[in-house]
């Protein structure tokens, strides 16, 4: 389990990470979602004790990273696949990592096999394609058979086959009871990979919720209704759980589906000129949430609904 509380990192005048608190549970894939430059990598470096937080604290199973004995046996991480010496072979890279944490040398061949790099293990890492480097990085993360795994944008630059492989791989790791914490700037990718989401923008927490909930909220349906009898329609729809907003000659209604609105209108003999369900795009909702134009709230439901209701993100 990873627990961050009040994590803050300041570089000169810029706040890269601002009072960020979240948890990533074991047995789940937790997605760490935010646009590029939101502070995801900085946060991950602080989790791993590479960067010192300006304020706040982050612990792994209750301990600071720097206090872990043989840390690779507890935490495996892939932050940047290019962090290898180009003139060192893949096997030599893993061999020194293994040696540093007293991991048996035969484990090196096991992880090479696991990520499918056995055939090129003797080749220098400098000649690897991005996909191969990524696999080597994952091999390094798995070396110590750790309970906690961190991956920073692991699918960046991968081909569809590679993306699918990583996605399945993470699910397998979580199913084995491990904590998997994976960052991405793509909500569509996270919707498929992660069960839990930690969403940040400009270094601040926007939401921590399950992926299902987030997607449901972000895509909550609204219905556009046009009618010559708007006032009557409005009173017919007026009941608990339904919110209505005026948009000139039409109403945007949430909390009730199109069929129910049609039935109500028919019962009250109201003529309808349009009855069209509106679907919000997940990506657009996410961009609006995390973009510069929006003030940040932790009340994700209202935000999303408001955004979708304005029609600016509706298709």
């Amino acid at each position: 389990m990873i627990e961050a509380s009040g994590l803050t990192k300041r570089y000169g005048k810029t706040l890269a990470v601002d009072n960020l608190s979240f948890t990533a549970q074991s047995g789940r894939v937790t997605g760490f979602l935010g646009p590029n430059g939101a502070g995801k990598s900085t946060t991950m470096r602080m989790v791993l004790g590479l960067d010192t937080p300006t304020a706040g604290d982050v612990r792994i199973d209750g301990k600071h990273y720097r206090d872990l004995k043989d840390p690779l046996r507890t935490v495996g991480a892939l932050l940047d696949a290019k962090w290898v010496h180009p003139n060192r072979s893949a096997r030599a890279h893993l061999a020194w990592l293994a040696r540093s944490n007293r991991i048996p040398a035969k484990r090196v061949d096991e992880v090479l096999e696991l990520v499918g790099l056995t055939g090129v293990a003797g080749k220098n890492a400098g000649g690897f394609s991005l996909g191969m480097s990524q696999r080597l990085g994952i091999a390094g993360a798995l070396l110590g058979d750790p309970k906690v795994l961190l991956f920073d944008e692991p699918v960046n630059g991968l081909d569809p086959e590679g993306i699918l492989w990583i996605r399945k791989f993470m699910h397998r790791l979580a199913d084995e009871g491990r904590t998997v914490f994976v960052s991405s700037h793509l909500l569509s990718e996270m919707a498929l990979t992660a069960q839990e989401l930690v969403v940040i923008g400009r270094g601040k927490l926007i939401a921590q919720t399950s992926t299902e909930e987030f997607v449901a909220m972000a895509t909550e349906a609204s219905v556009r209704v046009r009618s010559p009898q708007l006032d009557q329609l409005r009173s017919a729809l007026g009941r608990d759980g339904v919110s209505i907003r005026d948009e000139g000659d039409s109403l945007v209604v949430t909390g009730i589906d199109a069929a129910a609105i049609g039935d109500l209108a028919a019962a009250a003999s109201i003529a309808l000129h349009e009855l069209s369900p509106q679907r919000g795009s997940l990506e657009e909702a996410f961009m609006q949430l995390t973009g510069d134009s929006v003030e940040y709230h932790t009340d994700i439901a209202n935000d999303t609904a408001a955004l979708l209701a304005t029609g600016s993100v509706a298709r």
Partner: peptide, 11 residues
């Protein structure tokens, strides 16, 4: 960048 890998393995 291997210094980060190094410090990750040996804090």
């Amino acid at each position: 960048g291997t210094i980060r890998t190094t410090f990750q393995a040996m804090p």
